Simulated assay, not measured.
Amino acid sequence: MSTTCLAAAKRFIVKVGSTLVTNNGQGLDLNAISEWARQVAQLRQEGKEVLLVSSGAIAFGMQRLGWRQRPKAVHELQACAAIGQMGLVQVYENAFVRHGLATAQILLTHEDLADRKRYLNARATLTALLALGVVPIINENDTVVTDEIKFGDNDTLGALVANLIDADALIILTDQQGLYTADPRHDPNATLVSEAHAGDPALETMAGGAGSGIGKGGMITKILAAKRAASSGAHTAIASGREKDVMLRLARGEALGTLLVSGTPTLNARKQWIADHLQVSGRLILDAGAVKALSAGKSLLPVGVVDVQGEFERGALVICLSPEGKEIARGLINYSSGDARRIARHASADIEALLGYEYEAEIIHRDNLMTR
């Protein structure tokens, strides 16, 4: 497969590392951030959706504090993140506003994406921002996490966000040209890997360890991130963020850096994950009209729900049953069991009056449904 898979992509996650954002720890690289904003703006004009995952808060906080080495104490790392995040988002906001684009700061932890309710909330927020034409600037919430701040990295976060919003491609921009067969700093015979299948065990052997004292990751975290992104169908490109127009060239299918290809269609992989890897928390009994709608690939509306069985929270996995008790589908529900019972057999237009709020018009959206 060639890089045409990137040319066909519509939704991109672009991750930029600390070394690039802070110009090797010298301070925020305003020119680089300005260039990335220009490229994102152009991609938007070409009909692409872009979410930016940016490292740099801790590194910039270190620079503002005059610290040359990354501290090891968690509270000092969190202080660096709090200080650095302020300047980081201001720079991004100023860079994008020059192109008429609004930005939104999104701070996530791994727990946000592991908890089903928070997962759905994050997904809904990001989807709404994209629909509004806003560019989300995403970072790990380093001011509150503990283990993640010691062991986490934004390569992994980029992959998790790709899974979260069904991205077609993950672009990881780094200070290296891509993945080499060995460390080119030590092996003159090392060659660039132009294309491979994400998840190939040989890639992890090639990747080695962390490459910079500024950032937390390294090539190995990028290889593992590509493997994770591939589980939901996203292809990954690892390329130098210092290449001119790197985002635009990759999005147009130019061969740059290393392309790690996923072999699974995006939506099918996501639905298979829903079907196989989550514990069922409840059941919905549907009427014949709802069964027919789900069979046609439509969302489940509350009017088609006859009965709600079990106790569960928003975001839980529930089974959808026909009037005869046959499993028709399973999916992530937008409402808790109590609220689902209150809106069952009612039109979507009645949800706000019944509950005093409305998450979604659908009780389960078709993107979160796996039909049998």
Rank of each mutant, 00 (worst) to 15 (best):
T264P: 03
K150H: 14
A210H: 13
N154E: 10
I106H: 02
R116H: 13
L203E: 07
W67M: 12
G217N: 01
N139L: 04
G133L: 04
G233A: 15
A128D: 10
G211L: 09
S34P: 09
E140I: 06
L248P: 11
G208F: 03
G56T: 02
L301G: 08
C80S: 15
R283E: 13
G282Y: 09
V246T: 08
E76Y: 01
Y357I: 11
A229K: 09
D153Y: 01
T146K: 13
N94W: 05
L20G: 00
Y335A: 09
D183W: 06
N368V: 08
K227N: 05
A196L: 05
A167M: 10
S295K: 14
G133N: 07
V305M: 08
L260V: 05
I83D: 00
G17C: 01
N121Y: 12
I223H: 04
T19I: 11
I238T: 03
T266I: 15
T143I: 08
L317R: 07
S194F: 00
I83V: 13
M247D: 03
L88G: 02
G325Y: 00
L300A: 06
Y359V: 07
N154I: 03
I223S: 02
L294N: 02
A269P: 04
R38S: 14
N268R: 14
V193P: 00
T156I: 06
D307N: 15
L301A: 12
I58W: 07
K216I: 08
H277M: 12
A81T: 01
M247V: 00
A226T: 08
L157I: 07
N141M: 15
A59Q: 13
I171V: 15
E313Y: 03
L284M: 04
T266Y: 06
I106S: 04
L294R: 03
V14Y: 05
Q63P: 02
L132E: 01
L126V: 03
S240R: 13
I238G: 01
I351K: 04
G66R: 13
E313H: 10
E46I: 04
S34E: 08
R123P: 01
K326P: 05
L260N: 11
Q39K: 04
P136G: 01
L321M: 15
E204R: 08
L113V: 07
G253N: 03
A124W: 03
K15Q: 08
P71Y: 12
G325N: 09
A255N: 11
G133I: 05
A225F: 09
L203M: 14
A229Y: 00
K271F: 06
Q177H: 07
T181V: 05
V261M: 14
E327N: 07
N163C: 11
R38K: 15
D245C: 02
C80L: 14
L126T: 01
S322R: 06
K271D: 04
A81G: 03
G56N: 06
D287Y: 14
I83P: 00
